[in-house]
Design a protein around this nucleic acid. Structure first.
Lengths: 120, 120
DNA sequence: CAGAATCCGAATCGATACTG
DNA sequence: CAGTATCGATTCGGATTCTG
């Protein structure tokens, strides 16, 4: 588990469990990464990059490493030339599916309302 | 709507609606603030501070203003001495109840698993 | 192909002190 | 009571460049 998440989990009290979820899922691209891995079962580094519309490798690498450190995805390295690395959801990562659905549902509702408000 | 949220909503695409939710709910204390307002209907600034175990006024003020700008809470000022300000959930804020429940549920699951793993 | 190294600007959290 | 002002320290996302 990475340090930021560890601190939040350590200081975790009943009234802010929701912040634990946000600490784990809250990085750039992370919800999309988990959603894509839920749909595709397995994806390589380059495939993820293309599907996410090209975040910088620096950023994508860090998000993936954090998700791995937090136990949501697994990383499989094939020692060959050219290199090949595969990412999958772990069981814990898959358990976040329902939460991701709910995040998406409310996010859509919220964005729709804001757009309607702006257009009106 | 505050600027950060506005940008994320503007650049919003189908694949990352979940990030909209996180952008809105992701600040320090925000999930707790919304949960408390869901339980208490109405709370004053000082009451919120005590229930949250004393964030600095600077921080609490900003979180409340952002939630107000994003349309999740309302702020009612009574012009009197000493001053009195009441915060409540808006309809939009109340609509996030189910999402907050799900965030808390998975956060509890996650924190529990991590603690078990560490203790083992 | 899958990254690592370096650097940067912006945003955020928090401590401390002060005020209408 | 309900904030505001000022200041650090940290973190984070991203651009650029380079490599086994």
């Amino acid at each position: 588990m990475r340090e930021k998440t560890e601190r939040i989990v350590r200081e975790w009290t009943e009234s802010c469990d929701a912040e634990v979820s946000i600490a784990v899922l809250g990085g750039a691209w992370k919800p999309s990464i988990l959603t894509l891995l839920g749909e595709h079962e397995v994806l390589r580094f380059g495939e993820l990059g293309r599907l996410l519309q090209d975040p910088t490798p620096r950023v994508l690498t860090r998000q993936l490493r954090e998700l791995e450190a937090d136990g949501l995805i697994t990383r499989t390295v094939y020692r060959q030339v050219p290199p090949k690395v595969e990412y999958r959801l772990s069981e814990l990562g898959a358990s976040a599916g329902q939460l991701l659905t709910e995040l998406t549902r409310w996010g859509t509702l919220y964005a729709g309302r804001q757009r309607t408000a702006v257009d009106a």
